[in-house]
Design a protein around this nucleic acid. Structure first.
Ligand SMILES: [Zn+2]
Length: 479
DNA sequence: CGAGTTTGACCCGCGC
DNA sequence: GCGCGGGTCAAACTCG
């Protein structure tokens, strides 16, 4: 239901979802809804009119004639009574008024019927436009991906970025365990939360992940082994036991109460998060029979224009075209974010966030694995605010000098199929040189994610990939 | 009547 | 152990 409300006429016309789409219920009559049968409603309307015309008027073609007939009968009756010409004139005038009123009623009926037909047509066009919009987004994504692939695979750049990755990993390894929280996260903490001790000030992804990443005590409770010298296998066991589901959180500016991501969601709960005046809504994916994907939607406490959407789990069903096409890019982002530090068993998940934060170009995505819910946070609000600088930077990175890598190459297809097929045999491959692609991937993704509707699908896809990846790594390590 | 939403109750983990 | 808060459940309700 909520999803259906997103695709309202206003939304499609403006190109962006609009808050309180329920207004359409007032704008459009219930009969114009595509869910119901608009023709039935229209038929009922005419049926009522026919009843009306049976008593006073006649059906469509004979309205005027029947009225004239009745008029004559009345006149004859009245004239037999010896009325004056004045009265007769008044009667004629009143009859003319009646005729005029009947004509007006009839015209009104026609106008209303036409209006309803227009509503039906409007609804149909809206659906078409929606479909076209989805297709457009998908094609745009695909085109971007193909262009990146063309520009990719330069051995020189691979080596260069490879070295950069090693350097970053080395630097991360030298960091104290309690500094795993990325600078980006720290910045976000400072910007988004005025009260560090208070949870859920800016959304659940921060209250659970960032807060726990910042606060050592909570981290120690959640992951007591990560900061120690425990082996990676033991870490993985701990992770597998603690991790319930990976999450992707998207911060995007939107006035809509929920971002359309092509999936169908059913709301199963809503709570007032502590420290936030805005409620947090819980949704469950209803596209699949038993799809485990859930998402939380909450508005940022500091900036109500920012909508925070957190996805969790992987879909067990094919996605609509709008979401499918976006998986290409999301796969790349997820691959880069997730699989980078995994092969190095020394520091496990924790260091990934630091690695990501060190990439200057990757300024919109952060990975927080310090909680039971490894979470990628995509902050897309900056791209909308400083579009000029961002676009400039984006164009620069995506230029032919930049690479778009194997992430969009070989891994892409693996993860794409894995995402679509879900729990497929091809998990996320531990490509050794993923961080090299950080700039290009992030820039391309950021450019594409300028579309608010994309962000949700992006997050859903990444969440799905994260889940698969972590599960696979855990099982592999346990084996 | 089925699907979705609302909302209070309940469960569970965590901190004190 | 107790209280708090996040997350989920499920009955009641709404809507098409
Ligand atoms: Zn699903």
């Amino acid at each position: 239901m909520a999803e259906g409300r997103l695709f309202t006429g206003k939304e499609l016309i403006n190109g962006n979802p609009i808050l309180n789409c329920g207004e359409d219920e007032h704008v459009y009559p219930a009969g114009s809804s595509i869910d119901g049968n608009p023709m039935v409603k229209e038929m009922d309307f005419f049926a009522a009119d026919n009843n009306f015309s049976k008593e006073k008027v006649c059906a469509d073609d004979g309205v005027v004639h029947d009225l004239e007939l009745n008029t004559r009968l009345n006149l004859s009756t009245n004239t037999s009574g010896g009325k004056s010409n004045v009265d007769d004139h008044e009667r004629r005038t009143s009859y003319n008024d009646i005729i005029g009123n009947k004509r007006k009623v009839h015209e009104l009926i026609h106008v209303q019927s036409e209006l309803k037909q227009m509503h039906v047509e409007n609804k149909r066009l809206r659906d078409m436009l929606n479909q076209m919009n989805n297709n457009y987004n998908g094609l745009k994504m695909h085109l971007a991906t193909l262009m990146q692939i063309r520009n990719a695979k330069t051995e020189k750049d691979h080596e260069m970025i490879n070295a950069a990755v090693k350097e970053k990993n080395h630097a991360v390894a030298d960091e104290p365990s309690q500094n795993f929280c990325s600078s980006k996260e720290i910045i976000q903490m400072g910007l988004d939360k005025s009260d560090v001790g208070d949870s859920a000030t800016t959304g659940r992804e921060k209250s659970l992940d960032d807060h726990q990443a910042i606060i050592p005590g909570r981290v120690a409770n959640k992951f007591p082994k990560f900061g120690t010298s425990m082996d990676f296998d033991q870490h993985s066991e701990t992770v597998s036991s603690l991790i319930r589901k990976a999450r992707v959180s998207v911060r995007a500016r939107s006035d809509a109460y929920m971002i359309s991501d092509g999936c169908h969601w059913r709301k199963y709960g809503q709570k007032m998060a502590k420290g936030s005046p805005f409620p947090r809504a819980y949704y469950r994916c209803t596209m699949g029979s038993s799809c485990p994907v859930r998402k939380q939607v909450q508005r940022c406490a500091e900036d109500r224009s920012i909508l925070i959407t957190t996805y969790e789990g992987c879909h067990n069903h094919p996605l609509p075209p709008a979401a499918e096409a976006m998986v290409s890019t999301t796969s790349a982002v997820a691959s880069m974010l997730l699989s980078g530090p995994m092969p190095s068993a020394d520091h496990a998940l924790m260091n990934s966030s630091s690695i990501l934060s060190r990439n200057s170009a990757l300024n919109f995505a952060t990975l927080s694995t310090s909680a039971p819910f490894p979470t990628i946070t995509l902050d897309l609000t900056q791209s909308h605010n400083s579009s000029d600088q961002f676009q400039r930077e984006t164009r620069g990175v995506i230029s032919p000098n930049t690479l778009f890598p194997q992430v969009f190459g070989q891994s892409l297809h693996n993860q794409y199929s894995n995402y679509l097929g879900l729990h497929g045999s091809q998990g996320m491959q531990a490509a050794p040189n993923r961080m090299q692609n950080a700039d290009a991937v992030s820039s391309a993704t950021a450019a594409i994610t300028a579309n608010p509707n994309f962000t949700a699908a992006l997050a859903a896809a990444i969440a799905s990939i994260i889940d698969n990846t972590i599960t696979r790594n855990s099982t592999d390590n346990n084996a």
